[in-house]
Design a binder for these strands. Structure first.
Length: 275
DNA sequence: GCGAAATGGGAAA
DNA sequence: TTCCCCTTTCGCC
């Protein structure tokens, strides 16, 4: 389920298995043969998550592997107990990274490419502040929003404005804030924006911790933890017919080519002149 | 069993 | 806006 939380979770999980180790790289499927050959045998220096992107920095200027999962990309991580031989690839494995302790397979990514420094810089420059980066420039994000005419539902999905939020978090964060997605972003005003930002960070962190998106409040359903919530209670409005809390019929419409969901009873459309 | 839609995004038109 | 990529899942027949 790749939104920003997935990427940071992968980085965290893979670091102890791959970083500071020699990497045996291959492309069992064949579509990344050349790139894999370039990094094969090199030392991996760091894994950098930015929004929905992952960058693998290799030593000796061997290059930077850029991965974007898109909607279908998946990692499969297997530890090599007693350096056991990795299992044969499952499905179309674009990239396989093997170290002394693990085997990491990547299937179905939108992007898996080897970059040199300038191309890396270009991609980085297109990615807005990452909600999961403690040093993210919140001021810059608000400045963009205050200047724009776009709806908050569009701005939150624009990775050049703020990175890490996908279609599920967009719908759910705005529901939690009681703000209708078609509200002009600037109409939130600074205070509501700050509240929304803080909630976004805490929700994404829950996602990183438990490995899936759960945006409902467990206490509301008699559960102690987010993990305990069953699949039908993980979202308030996303892909639902009726709002989980109010029971109102969930409204569906398209913003920037993606389906957006909102509860007409609980999400108010703010006036652009207020705030 | 088949088609559509899905957590995403870039390029083309 | 529309197409295209990539893969899985779900609803409908």
């Amino acid at each position: 389920m790749p939104e920003g939380h997935t990427i940071h979770r992968h980085a965290k999980q893979q670091r102890p298995l791959l970083v500071d180790r020699a990497i045996e790289a291959s492309s069992p499927q064949g579509r990344f043969d050349t790139g894999a050959a370039m990094i094969d045998g090199r030392l991996l220096e760091s894994i950098e998550p930015v929004g929905k992107h992952l960058f693998y920095h290799f030593a000796d200027d061997a290059g930077i592997v850029h991965i974007h999962l898109g909607m279908y990309g998946k990692f499969r991580v297997a530890k090599r107990k007693d350096a056991a031989e990795p299992k044969p690839p499952r499905g179309a494995v674009r990239l396989r990274l093997v170290t002394d302790v693990a085997c990491v397979d990547l299937n179905g990514p939108t992007a898996c490419e080897l970059l040199e420094r300038p191309a890396y810089d270009t991609i980085k420059s297109r990615i807005g502040p990452d909600l999961l980066d403690p040093k993210a420039d919140r001021e810059a994000v608000w400045r963009r929003m205050a200047k724009s005419k776009a709806a908050i539902g569009a701005m939150l999905m624009d990775q050049s404005v703020v990175s890490g939020i996908g279609n599920i978090y967009r719908a759910e964060l705005l529901y939690r804030a009681g703000i209708h997605p078609l509200t002009p972003a600037k109409a939130l005003g600074r205070e509501r924006f700050d509240t929304l930002w803080a909630d976004a960070v805490s929700q994404l962190k829950i996602g990183v911790r438990i490995g899936k998106i759960v945006t409902t409040d467990p206490a509301e359903f008699g559960a102690k933890t987010h993990r305990q919530l069953t699949a039908d209670r993980r979202f308030y409005v996303y892909r639902r017919d009726k709002c989980l809390r109010s029971g109102a019929k969930v409204e569906r419409f398209t913003i920037a080519g993606r389906t957006c969901y909102a509860c007409p009873a609980e999400q108010k459309r703010l006036d652009a002149t207020r705030g």
